[in-house]
Amino acid sequence: MGTPESTTTERTIRTRAAELTDQPLTLLTVAVFWTWLVVRWTNDFLLDGALIERGTSFFPTAPFEAAASALGSLAASLGPVGFPVGWVAGFFEFLAASIPYLPELAIGVWATILLTVLGIALGFVIAVPLSVARVYGGTITRSLALGYTELFRGTPLLAQLFVLYFATPLTTVIRELPTVGTGFIPAQAFWVAVIAFTLNSAAYQSEYIRSALNSVPEGQLTAARAIGLSKVDGIRHVVLPQGLRYAIPGWSNELVYLIKYSSLASFITVRELFERTDAIASETYRYTELFVLAGLFYLALVISASLLMEYVEEQVAIPGLGTTGR
């Protein structure tokens, strides 16, 4: 069941996305995006709104509105040949309309990133033993690990969120914990989402790591045993360092997936990027502008993740091993 063999396809998908995104303009956009985010978060979270009041945008709308209307009338006066100018006018209109919502969305991006990073990191901690159990375990541990991954990979993440949120006492338990929902610590729904993402992503990550471990030649463990390492130490010092490198492409893929699927946390009231966008949209009815904006934010996060993973891959690359030089 499942298709661990698809890692090659996934690898090419990601490499190709990187080819397309590795252009100066994209890099510049990503840099601007992150600078803005960091300044915004610093102002809102750390400096208590010292630079500018919380919720107020850094950028004035007036110049963009003026530009939009000037260009709009220019386009009108040009008649039928004015349509390119009209497009530019539309773009400025879009900017002017978006600016007031930027601060709110930046806070949403923070929650989205937190959800993703916690989900993937905690998921990794579970995924490594899971995959080792799948490859090296006895019959019982092996089938337990298999059952876990098949269960979580065979049902929708949204259904898993619903089971945890509506059908278990998890929310009640977490709500009682100290500091939850006060100050920086998000409310219980966020933590339920983190648990769901962790459990779900552990299943997918373990599948990537499992096929990576399988691609480490058997002779490697034999040689490790031959110099006197125990099986556990051989796996730890010889097989895992290689296998985890093979797993990087699949793992990056999972990171990208998780960024996008973190939007599902909005269904259980987590106030991440999608939820905040949706809340504003249902008040202002500016669905198109707002969701195009949200889409661009997600895209920027996904591209940032791809670039980051590409960098990581380069940093840990070893000649002749894994994705490079093969």
Partner: peptide, 12 residues
């Protein structure tokens, strides 16, 4: 399309 959540695509 691969970089945007399905949720956003549907709503849009």
């Amino acid at each position: 399309l691969r970089g945007t959540p399905l949720l956003v695509i549907i709503i849009l």
